[in-house]
């Protein structure tokens, strides 16, 4: 039975599915459990990206088609490239808007911008 290519892909796809969905659900749990926006962002931008990336990779492998696999890989690369960008933008916007860090925080060396009067 072992060495059978069907079995091999099935096992690989199953492993990717289980690991990817675990990462996704843990990222969601982290979103719920972490104390403030900035710590939550860690969960969403790392575990979340890896989770959906692995699931996409599983779909690509399961298709047994090089074009589909390449497409899935392109999607994976796209998520890995955009996740830090959106996390960075959101963190920057939140900090500039004045959302503070949790009380647990030990240090904040990023200077808070002086509150500007908003244009009409």
């Amino acid at each position: 039975m072992t060495g059978d290519p069907d079995m091999l892909t099935a096992v690989a796809v199953s492993a990717l599915l289980v690991i990817g969905s675990l990462f996704s659900v843990l990222a969601a749990l982290g979103l719920l459990r972490f104390p403030d926006l900035y710590t939550r962002m860690h969960a969403a931008s790392k575990a979340g990206t890896i989770g959906s990336g692995l699931l996409l990779l599983a779909a690509g492998i399961h298709a047994m088609d090089i074009a589909i696999l390449l497409r899935a890989l392109a999607g994976f690369a796209f998520f890995v490239l955009t996740a830090p960008l959106s996390a960075h933008l959101l963190a920057k916007a939140a900090h500039q808007a004045g959302y503070r860090l949790t009380n647990l925080s030990v240090t904040d060396q990023l200077p808070q911008p002086a509150p500007k009067s908003r244009p009409h």
């Binding site: 675990l22 990462f23 843990l26 990222a27 749990l29 982290g30 459990r33 972490f34 104390p35 403030d36 900035y38 710590t39 860690h42 969960a43 790392k46 575990a47 900090h95 860090l101 949790t102 647990l104 925080s105 030990v106 240090t107 904040d108 060396q109 990023l110």
Partner: peptide, 16 residues
């Protein structure tokens, strides 16, 4: 991050 999330007592000391 996944291990940190499932730990019942998260000892975080976040900061910038």
């Amino acid at each position: 991050v996944a291990i940190l999330v499932v730990r019942p007592n998260m000892r975080l000391r976040p900061g910038i």
